[in-house]
Design a protein around this nucleic acid. Structure first.
Lengths: 383, 383
DNA sequence: GTGAAAGCGCTAACAC
DNA sequence: GTGTTAGCGCTTTCAC
């Protein structure tokens, strides 16, 4: 076997005694090629091990049929669900998807700048990342089609939820159950330029929480609002603080399911029964929420990615994308971690470890554990 | 503003009164361009809104500098961690990564066939997907560089763990604690062609489980081995069966953390205290395992993706990749769900729901809940 | 039906 | 330093 260069279309043409045009037609399944000729070409392709260059074809055709997806914190359940939704749609339309996972604002800026500077993707889907005015201008100047998901962007089609209303919804669920001392645990806005992505969902959910309390005539108590870095460990610590208060909350609204899990961990550790002593509601409805029986506000994660991708594809086809802002619905999913407030009981001091004991499940769940079963829940309200 | 076509390199050359070669040098930061000239070119680029075509450059240069990653079940925590590891490495070497999430064997075959048929990626990283002999031959025939992760492939560099040994390790952990009746919950090998990916990790872990039992002189009891579809719901049902046995196991080894969570759910539901009445060990050490205090066998997920990507890059540089099989180490991470077997107690029948109560935590975890803290654990043994 | 030839937009070798 | 030119491998008229 010769150590030669890859076969090209003209090699195939020569080998089969036809012109390159004919070979091209055969490759692309175009009509107007005699069967005998086609067979001859196919045989030459086979024996030369010819593989058409996607690059050359794309260049000649004028479009790479490639889309870039820029997304932070890919390993977070909410991110990966969005990504999966987008990938499925893009694959459906036969776009290649270049995935850019960005861990820092510097990476984000670098990736976005690259995407704008060189023409490597037909369009870009940005997930969860707030874009600066400069960045938006750059996309516009480059005429690079852009769609965002989970973040508002002026002049750009975006798919979002109403976080303020969703925050009200979660809080109302707790109020409706009879809670009056309701804590909030969310993300502290990062000041440090080096790590700040500028996420604002948590803050908007907090605003909704405050609105709902005010509407219910419950006075705000800032001692019940705790913010920290995203992640369960921090949330666990903050929940511990809340539970250690002289007048602790009977319920906690966590700005994400991940944080809610930290709250549950704190409750476990301090011996607070859930939901008897402490009700907990999260946000997102990631897959493990169902597993844990976590009550939460469900937002359509996978669908948001799919919708964003659909809109980007429409944009690439030159179709109008209206309305510019697509607002997806959310709903409260009441599972086993929220209930009516119980009588006050002291929590166990940290250090007095207890054994992992039985947990409550909604009645409907019991005896209904067949394969493929999804955790039972009831949807309380839809936004 | 004219509705004209995109500016090309020769437009820029013309506008700045230089040749295309000079423009190319400016774009690529090549030395040997007078500052004044460079400035003139840059200005022209600016005002023409010129964006170099990645496609044309790649074609001319001869390589797309693009890699494809083919991975199933992207939203599973183990998959996405591997993906993130690979993406980070590929970004480091400035490769674009096309991600192909495949949900079915048909999709897998389609994607792989496409990758082989057209030259669109410099190399391919296949994660967790067993490749047929035909598929492997196709890659070889196309001279398309291939590396796999989490799956053995003849003649191809692959990064794996020793699942059999890991299964022994998990089982030994339980044996060492004093357990003798140990259940196993894993994946049933799918027969249906339409859904069978041919994953074998669970089966190999089962083999290790059997080996460890035999080595400890514990007679096998097939009633304690339950296989079903992957996923927590199925595992929960199977664990329910096990706990309902006349002589139930005092410990269960689940072939994945996801399944272990189903086991925990079953224990909760049936009122079996963990680890008092039932010890549970999972496999993978996905992020939520730490959160739940789940004892597990940790395999380096993110690192496996990173290693695979490193090896693929080495291959693309033409370097030899040795040894062909890279075996990563695993270790038991003992958290709060495994302990010595306690006195036998009857489980509560399903339907008698209990409240979610305090769970055990390792002593070290208590009072150590600061931000950024990782759940405390002790590593029992390394393979 | 099929072949020839003109691009697609760039890089790189070579000349000046 | 800078311009010129020959490809890179394909698609796509446009003749025949």
């Amino acid at each position: 076997m010769t150590k030669t260069r890859r076969a090209t279309i003209s090699d195939v043409a020569a080998a089969s005694g036809v012109g390159v045009g004919t070979v091209s037609r055969v490759i692309n399944g175009a009509a107007g090629v005699r069967d005998a000729t086609r067979a001859r070409v196919l045989r030459a392709i086979e024996q030369l091990g010819y593989r058409p260059s996607h690059l050359a074809a794309s260049l000649s055709r004028g479009t790479p049929r490639t889309v870039a997806i820029v997304i932070p914190h890919l390993t977070r359940p909410s991110s990966v669900e969005r990504l999966a939704g987008a990938l499925a749609v893009l694959a459906k339309y036969e776009y290649d998807s270049i995935v850019c996972n960005v861990a820092t604002p510097a990476q984000r800026d670098h990736v976005l700048a690259m995407l704008v500077a060189r023409h490597r993707a037909d369009g870009v889907l940005v997930v969860s990342l707030p874009l600066s005015r400069v960045q938006l201008d750059a996309f516009r100047a480059a005429a690079l089609p852009l769609v965002t998901v989970d973040v508002v962007a002026r002049g750009v089609p975006h798919t979002v939820i109403d976080d303020v209303a969703a925050g009200r919804l979660a809080t109302s669920h707790l109020l409706d159950l009879g809670h009056r001392r309701i804590g909030f645990i969310g993300d502290r806005v990062q000041r440090s330029v080096s790590t700040a992505f500028g996420f604002t969902a948590s803050a908007r959910r907090l605003a909704g929480y405050r609105q709902a309390l005010a509407a219910a005539g419950v006075g705000p108590d800032d001692a019940l609002v705790r913010l920290g870095p995203h992640g369960p460990a921090s949330a666990q610590a903050l929940a511990g603080e809340l539970l250690g208060l002289a007048d602790p909350p009977s319920a906690i609204f966590a700005a994400s399911d991940t944080q809610a899990m930290g709250v549950l961990a704190a409750a476990d550790q301090l011996g607070a029964r859930v939901p008897g002593q402490l009700s907990v509601i999260g946000f997102d409805d990631i897959q493990s929420a169902a597993l844990l029986g976590l009550s939460t506000v469900r937002q359509p994660l996978e669908d948001s990615g799919a919708q964003g991708a659909e809109r980007l594809c429409a944009l690439l086809r030159g179709e109008p994308v209206r309305p510019r802002r697509q607002v997806l619905e959310v709903q409260v999913v009441a599972r086993a971690t929220t209930g009516r407030p119980g009588p006050r009981r002291a929590t166990r001091p940290p250090g007095a470890a207890a054994e992992r004991g039985p947990r409550g499940r909604p009645q409907a769940a019991a005896g209904n554990s067949g394969p493929g079963r999804r955790a039972a829940y009831r949807i309380t309200r839809t936004l």
